[in-house]
């Protein structure tokens, strides 16, 4: 039950994009088409889940036993960077079209603070292994949900008459703000 609550809260209540405001770069950059937004979301979910697992192992088996907690950030960056490289190689091999569509935002998952935030939050809250994994998957799905919703809205925005000064990033940021307000409505759901 506790795990389920954590899972739901990671998706809706403590959504990384709309609650913590982490990972805004791909959120705005790859949210022009639903297809590529979904792929981006899934790529981030994959990286988040594996990062959660590997960083938990490093944290609990290496860093804490040797009292090296201060190396958390450095070693988590290492984990994230390697995983992103792996995902990039895999996508390039498996789907060159997707590789083109994600473009620069794929390697930029490395510097996506949502993933770093996930690893550090899990370590800070001292989650158990199962909880960490749940948190990772939930957060990834939360990111996917946010970016796909955003992409759907932006596809509609392309067809509407946006005032000139707000075109492009301006209206996207306003939409993101309104979405974040809407997501605040979930905050009473889980204590």
């Amino acid at each position: 039950m506790e795990l389920l609550a954590l899972f739901i809260s990671a998706i809706l209540v403590n959504n990384f994009v709309l609650y913590y405001f982490l990972g805004i770069c791909p959120f705005l950059g790859v949210s022009k088409k639903i297809d590529s937004a979904l792929s981006m979301g899934l790529a981030v979910t994959f990286v988040m889940t594996i990062t959660a697992v590997v960083s938990w192992m490093i944290n609990h088996w290496i860093l804490i036993p040797y009292k090296l907690d201060y190396l958390q950030i450095v070693s988590f960056i290492l984990v994230i960077a390697s995983l992103v490289q792996l995902v990039e190689m895999f996508i390039r091999k498996a789907s060159p079209a997707l590789y083109q569509a994600l473009g620069i935002y794929l390697p930029l998952i490395t510097t996506n603070c949502a993933i770093m935030g996930l690893a550090l939050l899990a370590a800070l809250k001292n989650f158990s292994f199962l909880k960490t994994v749940t948190f990772g998957i939930g957060s990834g799905l939360g990111f996917t949900l946010a970016i796909v919703l955003m992409a759907s809205i932006r596809e509609q925005l392309d067809l509407s008459d946006v005032p000139k000064p707000l075109k492009g990033a301006g209206i996207a940021l306003i939409v993101a703000g309104i979405m974040a307000l809407a997501f605040q409505g979930f905050s009473g759901m889980i204590k």
Partner: peptide
Amino acid sequence: AIPILTMAALGFFFALGLAVAYQKLKV
């Protein structure tokens, strides 16, 4: 020595993983 060795070991481990993956997934 311990932190340096730990990080070196971790770095080496991931580098090895990537090198293997690169060979497998080379385009």
